[in-house]
Amino acid sequence: MELTREQVEHVAMLARLGLSEEEIERLRTQLSSILAHVNMLSELDTEAIPPTAQVIAMQDVVAPDEPVASYPVDEMLENAPEREDSYFRVRSVLGYET
C-alpha cells in the first residue's frame, strides 16, 4: 500500500509537524514500507478478541483528597522560552498582533 503525498501532508498537519519537501517524500516511502510490514496483522482473526490497552490489573487508583503544596510559579516558568509576568507568552493565536 503506497501512501500519497497528500496523506503525508494531512497527517503531518494533524501532528503539527512541519516537514521539508525532501522529508515528505522520504517519509512517504518509509511509512509505506513500514505499513506494508505491519499489515501482516490482517492475517490474524481477531474478531472475538478483546483489545488490551494496558497490562496492569489495577483500576481507578485514587489519592486521598488532601491539598498539598504545588511548585512555585517562578520555578515552573524557569524553562519557558518566553514569559511575561507569571504567564507563558505565545505567538498570536488569531494570526495577527493585537
Binding site: 505491519v38 496483522l41 490482517s42 490474524l44 481477531t46 478478541i49 483489545p51 488490551t52 490497552a53
Partner: peptide, 9 residues
C-alpha cells in the same frame, strides 16, 4: 485497535 487485540493474543 487491531494491534491492541493482537497484544491480547
Amino acid at each position: 485497535v487491531k494491534a491492541q487485540k493482537v497484544r491480547t493474543i
